[in-house]
């Protein structure tokens, strides 16, 4: 029973919500809750935190009473660590490259890095795609929409 519980998706789902609810409830008491008539900034989050905790407990409870489902794996069957990592790395590189070298470099690196996440992409196909996006993309945002983001900069 108990070791079954540790395999259940709902156990973790409920657990996270309970913890989050409790954290919010505790945190909201640091603001002034006031009275029901004159509510302070802390009252509404306090109520929501309590509700979230209760729902978390209810999800946990439902995990307790339902039998173990067929597919309780939290991660999908084929794990795409590279794909997941690179999809997150693309925007991160956008921030870094954009901060130091400007929009063109940021766009290229964002598209290039995230495109590598697909199993069928190669270095070459990703670079070509990145180039095809960078040129019209930068033109659109710099000249048509006039976004205040320098196309090139050197800020090391």
């Amino acid at each position: 029973m108990l070791e079954n519980l540790l395999h259940k998706r709902d156990f973790y789902a409920g657990g996270i919500m309970t913890l989050m609810g409790a954290a919010v409830t505790l945190n909201s008491t640091t603001y002034n809750t006031g009275t029901l008539m004159h509510m302070g900034p802390g009252m509404f989050p306090f109520i929501l935190g309590c509700v979230l905790t209760l729902i978390g407990v209810a999800i946990l409870g439902s995990a307790l009473v339902t039998p173990l489902g067929e597919d309780e794996h939290i991660l999908p069957r084929n794990k795409e660590w590279l794909g997941w990592g690179l999809i997150l790395a693309g925007p991160i590189s956008f921030i870094i490259m954009g901060h130091f070298f400007g929009m063109a470099a940021a766009t290229f690196s964002c598209v290039f890095i995230s495109a590598l996440g697909d199993r069928e992409s190669t270095l070459k196909s990703s670079a070509v795609l990145a180039l095809c996006i960078t040129v019209p993309g930068c033109f659109l945002f710099t000249y048509v929409l006039q976004l205040p983001f320098p196309l090139f900069r050197w800020a090391i």
Binding site: P91, H99, C110, V111, F112, D118, E120, I133, L147, F149
Partner: peptide
């Protein structure tokens, strides 16, 4: 899809940036 999502990610990044011009 391998052409689609990287291009979309660029629009995501630049779109979010343009709301406040802030990384």
């Amino acid at each position: 899809y391998r052409y689609l999502y990287p291009s979309a990610l660029f629009f995501v990044c630049i779109g979010v940036y343009s709301t406040n011009n802030d990384m």
